[in-house]
Structure formats: structure tokens, C-alpha cells
Design a protein around this nucleic acid. Structure first.
Lengths: 187, 187
DNA sequence: GTCTATAATTTGATAGAC
DNA sequence: GTCTATCAAATTATAGAC
């Protein structure tokens, strides 16, 4: 019976550390992208040495793949059910969480822009992010995939523009225009 | 009189070399962003040593600022007059030139995504790119700045999505939806 | 699991000969 | 203007002690 308690501790403590590493790495990757941070940056943020990061994630690709998968899963989970009322608005609010604060660019938006130079597995995780986003939006819009693609593209682009100009208003206005365009149905 | 000929040569030859450096650096930056290429990468592509690149552009920031300014000026020039017929379509076509070929991501889209980590002057050049794009689109749309912002955001985002998924169709469909949304006027 | 130490390479940048 | 040579620092990654 006491062995169960021991087991839980052995399993849980390393998971916490792993999560803290991902937290630090995510923050750094959302600032500078794949090539804009180093293992030592992550280690310094966590308060350990870079060799310890390698113990949990042998290569940089391992780290960024894990990072991106976690980011994607959390993001999709935060969206909830696309068939519930106010779905399009919830989507716009989710994208807005990447606006207004420095060093919090949408991870997948940044990695997608760097896509050509990324390791294969990382590129794959990013592609899955947008596949899932478009699927979700298409369901929210009643199956209109074209408008879903335009909406996701618009929100993703609005995040980049608003951040680049340090003006969240750009995002809010663009999101409003995109949502009204979406709700206007077939031209 | 012969001195004029000499003068032209002295002025023109270095300018050609400078342009060739910018050509190579632009290609690399459009692939991996600010942190995704090195002076040695540029030098190898041009066929010289990295010290020669430093002769023309002392620091990396100098190089990327020059790069971005040239990219912006050329892009805006290619758009022509926003008051001439078919302006919105020309805008969509201009953005489409960054779709379909690898290593040709929109330079400013990539740098804007990396914005938080960029040197100040570089960030400024990128901001100017989108200021000018929104202004141009607003004039093309008869002064509707909100719809101009949404259109630029949508096209910029569609480029990233289409490249990331290696599917130019995403851009074409999203651009069509965005243009039809734009032409539908106030909801 | 974390550390020290280190390997092997790459980076941005400079000095000075030609 | 381009080169060789070099620097100091940073990079990803590994080996092995604790």
C-alpha cells in the first residue's frame, strides 16, 4: 500500500519539472521563434543547467515538438464545443489572448511563418494546429470550410499585425470586420 | 569627360555587389527569419567571405534593415495605384507571390511574427510595411480603414496558412472569401 | 536528475595585408 | 573591396561524477 504512494511521487515530481521546462521554453519560443532561443536560455529561466534540459528533451526538436503539441492541445481545449452558441466569438477571444502582452505571440503563428526552416516533425505539429482550427471553425460556421479558412487566416494575421504595431485595437477592429463578414452568409 | 565615365563605374559596380548581397540575404531571411541565417550563409551564397559582407553592412541589424526597406519599397511599388480598377485583386495577387514556392515567405510577415525579439530599427521597418499596406488598401476600398485592416490581416494570415500546409489552394480560397466579404459593403 | 566539464561547431564582428 | 586570420562568445550536445 505504501508502494502506491511512492509510485505516485516518482511519477509526479518529474512531470512537474518537465512542465516547468515547457513553460519556460514556451515563453521564449513565443518571443523569438525556433532559432531565437537556446537551451541555456531555458535552463536559466528554470534555474538549472542546460544539461538538465537535455535530460528531459534530448534535442531541440524534441523540446519544440513537445512544446507545440501541448500548446495546440490546450488551445483547442480552451475553445470548447464549436456547436455551442457564440462559438465564433470564443474563437476570436482565444486568438486575442496572443495580443496585448509582449513575448506572448501565438506560438504556432510564429512557427508557421518559420515553417520552411523547421525540422520536419515540428512543421507537422504546426500543420495539425491549423488543420484542427479550420475544422473547428468550419463546424462553428455550419460546414462552410472556405469561410472557416478565411476567418482563421484573418484572426491569425490580425494577431501579427496588432502585435507588430503594438496596437490591440487593430486586432479588435479586424476581428469585428471578419466576424461580420462571416455572419453575412453567402454574398 | 572621361572622368564622368570613370565616376559612373566607381559608383555603379559597388551598388551591384550590394544588391547581390541583399538578394542572397533576402532569400535566406525569407526562409528562416532574423535568427535563421548567418553572415557566413550570405557570404557563401554570394561567393565571397563573411568579412566582405561586414564591409557593406557592418552589423546584422544594418543588413536586415536595408533588406526590409528594399522589400517594402518594391512591394508597394508593385501594387500601383489603389484608385485604379481591380486594386483589391492586385493586392491579393501581390500577397500570393509569397505562396507556392519554398523559401519565399513574405519577409515582413515573418519578421512581424518575430517582432518582440527584433532590434528596434528592424521592428520599425516592418511596422511601416503594414502601415503602408493598410493605407493603400483603405484607399482602394474607398476609405474603409476597418475593412482594409481585416483584408490585410486576412491576406497575411492566408499566406502563412497556405505555406505551412503546403497548399496554395488555402490562399486562393481564403483570398476569394476575403475579397467577397470586402465587396459586400456594410453588413 | 542534476551537476561539472568539455567537445565540436557556429556566431557576429574586427584587424590588417593586399 | 576582398581577403586571411583571429577573437570572444554562444551554440547543441555528450560523458561521467555525484
Amino acid at each position: 500500500m505504501t508502494s502506491m504512494t511512492d509510485e505516485r511521487e516518482v511519477i509526479r515530481r518529474p512531470a512537474d519539472r518537465r512542465e516547468r521546462i515547457l513553460d519556460a521554453a514556451e515563453k521564449l519560443a513565443r518571443r523569438g521563434g525556433y532559432f531565437g532561443f537556446s537551451f541555456r536560455d531555458v535552463a536559466a529561466a528554470v534555474g538549472v543547467k542546460s544539461a538538465s534540459i537535455h535530460h528531459h528533451f534530448p534535442t531541440k526538436e524534441d523540446l519544440v515538438v513537445a512544446l507545440t503539441a501541448r500548446y495546440r492541445d490546450r488551445f483547442l481545449e480552451s475553445l470548447g464545443d464549436p456547436l455551442q452558441p457564440g462559438a465564433a466569438r470564443r474563437l476570436a477571444d482565444a486568438y486575442r489572448s496572443a495580443v496585448g502582452t509582449r513575448d506572448q505571440m501565438c506560438l504556432c503563428g510564429l512557427l508557421a511563418a518559420e515553417s520552411d526552416a523547421l525540422p520536419e516533425a515540428t512543421r507537422g505539429e504546426v500543420g495539425t494546429f491549423y488543420d484542427a482550427n479550420i475544422d473547428w471553425a468550419a463546424r462553428a460556421l455550419g460546414g462552410e470550410t472556405e469561410r472557416a479558412e478565411a476567418l482563421i487566416a484573418g484572426l491569425a494575421g490580425a494577431v501579427v499585425l496588432a502585435r507588430s504595431k503594438l496596437d490591440p485595437g487593430i486586432y479588435d477592429r479586424a476581428a469585428a470586420a471578419l466576424l461580420s463578414g462571416v455572419s453575412s452568409g453567402h454574398r
